[in-house]
């Protein structure tokens, strides 16, 4: 099993930490993992992305040009990474702020309105965990038990009281994800 993922969005959306939690979940599952961020002169409001690879085998290149799954959280990232999904691969996006919706017919497209859901849950910071939950619902590569272990490992101890809220957000993400069919 090998899953090559790009997560891309605005800086401040929790893109990198979502990738880290996913990678740590893989470690807890006993998999090989790599987490490679874009680390340009980026800041809150700019773009941020991270490549996460989870594999049963040792990982060769941590740098990739095409992905099994792209998780896309803003329009700039859609413009850049929709075309980077392998044929037959998966694209998950949050519709918030998206003006040009994905149009490829050779990939599977899913939408998760995580921004809106995070507002409903009265916790904007759980946004990235809603997205992660949506992803995990589709790709059953790590057990929930290991995701929670990964979450615990990724968060500093002073934030451990937030774990139940994050767990709720992960489960909610799995509930609200919906498949999109591209129409002519």
């Amino acid at each position: 099993m090998k899953e090559e993922i790009i997560i891309a969005g605005f800086g401040g959306q929790g893109v990198l930490s979502m990738g880290k939690i996913l990678a740590y979940s893989g470690v807890m599952q006993g998999m090989e993992v790599s987490w490679m961020p874009s680390y340009g002169p980026e800041m809150r409001g700019g773009t941020a992305n991270v490549t996460v690879i989870l594999s049963d085998e040792p990982i060769s290149s941590p740098i990739l040009h095409e992905f099994d799954t792209a998780i896309i959280l803003n329009q700039q990232s859609m413009d850049k990474f929709e075309k980077a999904v392998k044929p037959g691969g998966t694209l998950i996006y949050d519709g918030n702020g998206i003006t040009h919706h994905p149009s490829r017919k050779d990939i599977n497209i899913y939408r998760v309105d995580a921004t809106a859901e995070a507002v409903k849950m009265r916790s904007v910071k759980t946004f990235n965990m809603i997205v992660l939950g949506a992803y995990l619902k589709l790709k059953n590569i790590v057990d929930m038990e290991n995701v929670l272990k990964g979450l615990k490992k990724s968060l500093p101890e002073r934030h451990h009281h937030l774990i139940p809220m994050n767990e709720k957000a992960i489960l909610r993400g799995g509930e609200i994800i919906q498949e999109i069919s591209v129409v002519e």
Partner: peptide, 10 residues
Amino acid sequence: DGVIGQMMEK
């Protein structure tokens, strides 16, 4: 280099 410095692995 920046790749090995910035990336996370086990």
